[in-house]
């Protein structure tokens, strides 16, 4: 089980968090065409190494976090809150 260090709450067990998908894909602007949205929704890399992903501290402060996790080791190498809200 991962230990995720929430910037607001400190180190907590993975069971307090919900996975929110790949954070490395940039969300297209509303005006962007279908192709850009198709890539955003469906196209994913499967990197070996550091991978950016969204996690929500859903059983805690409910902040959405951007977590950089090494897919080879499950080490969390960086973590950041998205918005101070």
């Amino acid at each position: 089980m991962l230990t995720i260090c929430c910037p607001y709450c400190g180190p907590r067990g993975q069971s307090e968090f919900s996975y929110g998908g790949d954070a490395s894909v940039a969300r297209p602007s509303p005006e962007a065409g279908g192709d850009a949205w198709f890539a955003y929704v469906y196209a994913r890399h499967n990197p070996k190494g550091p991978h950016q992903e969204f996690w929500q501290h859903s059983a805690g402060c409910r902040a959405w976090l951007k977590v950089t996790r090494d897919t080879r080791t499950h080490d969390i190498v960086a973590i950041a809150a998205l918005a101070a809200k």
């Binding site: 919900s18 929110g20 969300r27 969204f54 929500q56 859903s58 409910r62 902040a63 959405w64 998205l82 918005a83 809200k85």
Partner: peptide, 18 residues
Amino acid sequence: MQNMEFLLQAVWPELDVY
């Protein structure tokens, strides 16, 4: 609820919505 929180925090943090 999760989806709303995600959009407000990750996509449109500039919106004044709680």
